[in-house]
Design a protein around this nucleic acid. Sequence first.
DNA 1: ACCCCTGATACATCGGATGTTTTGCTCCGG
DNA 2: CCGGAGCAAAACATCCGATGTATCAGGGGT
Lengths: 223, 223
Amino acid sequence: MAVTDEAIEKIKGMIVSGALRPGDRLPKESELAADLGLSRNSLREAVRALSLIRILDVRQGDGTYVTSLDPQLLLEALSFVVDFHRDDTVLEFLAVRRILEPAATALASTRISEAELDRLQAQLDALGQEPSVEELVACDLEFHRGIVQCSGNSVLCSLLDGLSGPTTRARVWRGLTQEDAVSRTLHEHRAILSALRDRDAEAARSWATVHIASVEQWLRSTL
Amino acid sequence: MAVTDEAIEKIKGMIVSGALRPGDRLPKESELAADLGLSRNSLREAVRALSLIRILDVRQGDGTYVTSLDPQLLLEALSFVVDFHRDDTVLEFLAVRRILEPAATALASTRISEAELDRLQAQLDALGQEPSVEELVACDLEFHRGIVQCSGNSVLCSLLDGLSGPTTRARVWRGLTQEDAVSRTLHEHRAILSALRDRDAEAARSWATVHIASVEQWLRSTL
DNA sequence: ACCCCTGATACATCGGATGTTTTGCTCCGG
DNA sequence: CCGGAGCAAAACATCCGATGTATCAGGGGT
């Protein structure tokens, strides 16, 4: 195995074993390189790789630190990966979202606070009758993110965030100018919110399923 | 932004835009570095980072290539990330699995072939009455992987693979020596398989839910 | 026609030099 | 005594050039 890959494994091992804890600072480049028995250049490659997936946080002039390792942070890297997927796999991502999103919405129905309900309501109201596609996409993203955050599961939240990232969403909505689709989306959002307010988990789940299935159907018909 | 990060974005852009397609070979280090306007060392850091998440495949003495970009390959990086999570988030990962796995099992019930059913059956039979914990864990992993692959959704399959990776699974089973838990697991596996053979999606979904919930309950009681 | 050897190619690794950013301390003025 | 400007040290960022090593293709021998 290449020395750089060894270094990656060793640093990973130090973190997993607990020798390095979240927030800890690593020895400086030259020292760590000497400890691990490789050159600074090779070590830098390892550190850069771990930095891309948010395991390490390098700050010029300061030092290199272990991140918080929060699921939220680590799964952020997921959206980076998702960006690389080609159009022909969008349906598979959407199918996964169709599984997760209704479940998350149902979970949220029992935990969401009145304040959060009001906030979501205000957000929907803020969107006029004739929103632009960009506004609708942003609203859609924010609406679902707000709900999923109330599921109380940060892994689930980050996962959905990554899967429904801007790229996937943008692709889905690109060119979608049919008026009935827009109004239907708005209607479904209100229905979901209403179910949440009623603390009706099954209704919330069903509306979320319908919501995603309609997008899926439209997408399937255009491909 | 640092030159290395710029390089990462530029390479990503070349792939996403289609200038570089899966399987394509990149210009050699020195040329690409010159094109992007940075040194070879800095470029190598970018390439190494993209290599860690399976976007690029570097082969010494040959060249650097774009991988197939299959969901399966890209989500492999997920298991690397999952390995970093601490014990206190295992329950959240398990909760997500509890959502996905039953859905995947239900999907599989309508698509799984007779040959695959027989293969799973043989696999379960191969496990004796007194399997070691290691054997049980390996069998459990292989059993569920086999089923999920029949869901026909490679994204779902890879996602579950990453979430249920060896680390998480090993943690769950560590110290689990209670005899009734072992026999119960085997019984649940047979029940799932039986439901699949009957093409009964709802039964398959329910058994899968029960299966994971029992693990979850046991884990929750020991934490 | 097949196998082995060799040269070209491209990545791997290294060490050192120099620039940039951040941090923190010192010193001076109010 | 307090606060701000400026300086110096620490640490990462970037680059260059040299050397090692693995792969592949083509030539030569059998």
